[in-house]
Structures are given as C-alpha cells and as structure tokens.
Write a protein that binds this DNA or RNA. Structure first.
Lengths: 134, 134
DNA sequence: AGTTAAATTGTTATAATATAACATTTTGTA
DNA sequence: TACAAAATGTTATATTATAACAATTTAACT
C-alpha cells in the first residue's frame, strides 16, 4: 500500500486549526475549538495530534505542551527540530538553519551513542518584547 | 540577604532522592518515595522541584516530564542544557561538551532574537541497546 | 464487486501531571 | 525583636494524557 498523502477527516480538521493559528495550540484548546465540527473527546484530538506529529505536519513544543504546524515545507518527518521561544509573549518560531541542523545532525558525543533525532528549544526575548522593555 | 547555599528540608529530601537515582524521576514517583519522610502533597514536591530547577541542582527532561540531578558540578544555573536519551531503555545522560555549548550559546538566527537559554534533547539508542538488537 | 488488513473513529472512564488559593511557620538579617 | 522573604502545610481543582473496547472506514488486492 502506497503511503497516503491525504489526511483523515479528524486529522484534517485539527491540522487546519493548528496551521492557521499564529501561536502554538494546546490539546484542550484544540478540543474546544473543534467541538462544533463533531470532535467531542480528548482522545480524538490526541490521536490526530500523534499522527500529525508522526508524519511531520506538526511539531510538539515540549516545554509548552503545545503544537505548531511545521514551517518547513520539506520537513516530512520531524527528526531534527529547533525552535525559538519568546519567554515574554510566548511567540514560537521554527528555526530553519542548515548550519545548525548540519552541526547537530552530525554531532557525536563521547558516549558512543548514535542519535537519530533531536529537539532544540531556544528561549529569549523576541524583537518586539525587547523594545517594549526598553 | 546573601544567597543561601543550603537547601531547605523538603528541597534536600527531594534532591537526595533524585541525586541517587540512576534514572530520571517523575514527580508523583518522587511523591510516593518521600511520603515516609513527611512530604504528603504534590504541591510540596512541585515547589521543591521548581526551586531545584531554578538554582540548577536538577534539570527537567521536558520530553519525559522527569527530573535528573545536574551532572555538571559547575552548573549553578541551567541556561544551557543538553541530554542524550535512549529511546529503548530510557537512559538519560547530560551532555557536557564545550564545543556544543559554545556553538549553541553563540548561535544567532536571522530573526534577530537574543537567546539567553536553550535546552537540547538528542534521541537514539545507547550502546547497550544497540548491541541487544543486533 | 468481494475480501481482507490496516487505519481511523467513537465512547466512557480514568490515569498522570500540575497549579490555585489561603493560612501558617521558619529563616536570615537589619 | 521585628521585619520581609522564603518555605511549608493543606484542600481542592485544573490540565494533560492514556486505557480499553467496539464499530466503521479506507485502500489494496483478488
């Protein structure tokens, strides 16, 4: 069976919501927003989220328990993710920097472990929030 | 008031438990383990964990919702953390690699954001688990 | 078209993780 | 000794996530 490109109904509903959101969405906020579209239970949301993460359409921001759409059109599977997070306004942006990804993908520590995946979260203040404070 | 070096009673109890554990501990597992020592409520555990994270004695492994003692004696505040996580046995090790930390601490993306903190989690198979599979 | 296996969905209940709110006590030091 | 900050104790509740089971849909292959 050739890999389906299309999302299922629930997956599509939830992806659309996340994709048009300017900020990461949390699972129960998603649930609340899709109840009018017939998705009633947390598990329906979590199952769609799991699948979307697995196929790389969305990423989980671990430190926030929230989900954002993949910004990187070529990113089919999310084995190498990096984000910048503003600690003031909570804006999250996916970092797409080939120097960084090359460095981390080829990184080898002395423990002899072979890495096949990484997730990196940078924290700081975004431009807007820096200017607000000064 | 000069910064206290010593931990409070609850902080010490919880730090000792985490520090002697070979693996990351979860909050409710900690709670269960310290009940005999008089800590009865989740909030008592979370408050101690928050403080210990803040002062850099422990780190939170975000992808696992678990806590490990800082392996790096010089790490008083945890602004730059990196871990390797075995996806088979769940062993977690703090990575202490100056090349990596220099690279990431000085990393600047094109978005103009100033980072003051990062957390990096590598996933893969540890040596033991690689040999088990082959 | 009919068969089949995998994927998805629906549903109820419950587990696991984390914080709010408020009162009290301890600690370090001015 | 009085004050402010930090830590503690306690009850209740909010938030995040999964278990278990049944039914339906999908897509590849006869």
């Amino acid at each position: 069976m050739r890999k389906m490109q299309n999302l299922s109904k629930n997956q599509q509903i939830i992806f659309d919501l996340i994709d048009k959101s300017p900020e990461p969405l949390k699972a129960y906020s998603i649930l609340f927003n899709v109840q009018k579209r017939g998705i009633k239970a947390p598990l329906q949301v979590y199952r769609a989220l799991d699948k979307l993460v697995e196929i790389g359409k969305i990423h989980k921001i671990e430190s926030r328990n929230a989900f954002i759409a993949c910004q990187n059109s070529s990113c089919q599977i999310s084995k190498a993710t990096a984000f910048s997070i503003c600690e003031s306004c909570e804006k999250v942006t996916e970092i797409n920097n080939s120097n960084l990804s090359k460095y981390l993908t080829s990184f080898k520590d002395k423990n002899g472990m072979k890495y096949n995946k990484y997730n990196l979260e940078f924290f700081g203040l975004c431009k807007k929030c820096i200017s607000k404070k000064s």
